[in-house]
Amino acid sequence: MTAATTQQPPVSRDPMVPRPFRVVASHLDTDDTVTLSLEPMGSDPLVFAPGQFTMLHAFGVGEVPISICGDPTRPDPLMHTIRDVGNVTHALVSAEVGAVVGVRGPYGTGWRPGDGVGGDLLMVAGGIGLAPLRPALLEVASRRDEYDRVVLLYGARSPADILFEDDLRRWADECRIEVAVTVDYAPPEWDGRVGPVTTLVGRAGFDPPRTLALVCGPEIMMTLTANALLGRGVAPHRMRLSMERNMKCGAGLCGHCQLREFFLCVDGPVLPYSQLAPLLDVREL
């Protein structure tokens, strides 16, 4: 019996049911940030594009969106760098090796660094925002010759909060990526830069009209960076930002992540600044 009603919606796999993954490694990056390596239990590795995220579920606690931070060409184990800021993230960073977490995804749009091939690629990261950019950096490092200048500007709160120091060194020393790190506050023994990451934009070595800029960090950091990039002459549609909003599904179904016409979990999180600028200017949109 089939009733020909409005439409026959397709019956398919439920996007709200997670797959179990086992924690195979847990690395303490800083005093509040942990990188978890996860292996699927009886299912395929989760193939992803740089910039995409998953919904990570901690048993009995809840579920949150977390970007994938590993190498897109080696999705097994699946890596997430998580900062302990509340209930669910606390449960996740506390997960011990052997524990099981639920994974849904991958979701959202990616950075698509390849759109910058043939020109300069600039990445600007603030705080935990380096984690979502890491897959793009790994991809670019493996195809370094396809780009002209590749620049990473990274701002952290203090020297103790700097993530992925080994990567930063390797990218700079072996991959011809110009890496500039700055911190907002430092003890006197810090021999690097002090000042917000936005101050690095002014003199960084990239050619604005030929640059694709990928920006990730707190919203205020991203809008200030976009302003600084505008000042240097990078076109708004050549800047991409990764947006954070409350997300309950990741699948375009729960409504929470809406920013006017965008479902940031599906249309984003990565969107061109040309589309975001008019929306970010309006308070509480």
Binding site: P9, S12, A251, G252, L253
Partner: peptide, 13 residues
């Protein structure tokens, strides 16, 4: 809204 896009609300469907 629930069934015509990428991911489908399976129970609704």
């Amino acid at each position: 809204v629930l069934t015509s896009r990428g991911l489908v609300d399976a129970r609704y469907a």
